[in-house]
């Protein structure tokens, strides 16, 4: 609970963060940077959970615990994604998004 700050502002912040992540996902040319954008997205959700929990439903800790799991999952996901990206790099020596377009139509 942050004095003077309403839940609307919190949600606005997290939404902006979420859509910045989305924007990043759309525009980044490098797979690793795309993955970074995903981190923003996940963090937006985590922030949501925590702050909604504390603002609106403080008697239970569901949101708070949820966010712990989000972080854990984000870590696992990132690790795997990086492994996959590196695997790609070993084959084509590139991690550019534009080099992952041989399958289409």
């Amino acid at each position: 609970m942050i004095a003077g700050i309403s839940i609307y502002e919190i949600l606005t912040l997290s939404s902006i963060l979420f859509f910045i992540g989305i924007y990043g996902f759309f525009t980044r040319d490098n797979l690793i940077t795309v993955l970074m954008a995903v981190e923003l997205i996940l963090n937006a959700s985590a922030v949501n959970f925590v702050l909604i929990n504390t603002y609106l439903y403080p008697d239970l800790l569901q949101g708070a615990v949820f966010s712990i799991f989000i972080i854990a999952l984000a870590a696992a996901e990132t690790a795997l994604a990086i492994a996959i990206i590196i695997n790609l790099y070993r084959i084509i020596y590139s991690v550019e998004v534009k080099d992952t377009e041989i399958m289409k139509y």
Partner: peptide, 29 residues
């Protein structure tokens, strides 16, 4: 919001783990 535990996790897992992973990846590539 006084959720220090999560803040700590955020800093260690993200700052200490994921970001480092990213940096390694970048440097590897």
């Amino acid at each position: 919001v006084d959720y220090n535990f999560l803040a700590a996790i955020q800093l260690t897992v993200y700052g200490g783990g994921i970001i480092v992973l990213f940096i390694f990846a970048v440097m590897l590539i």
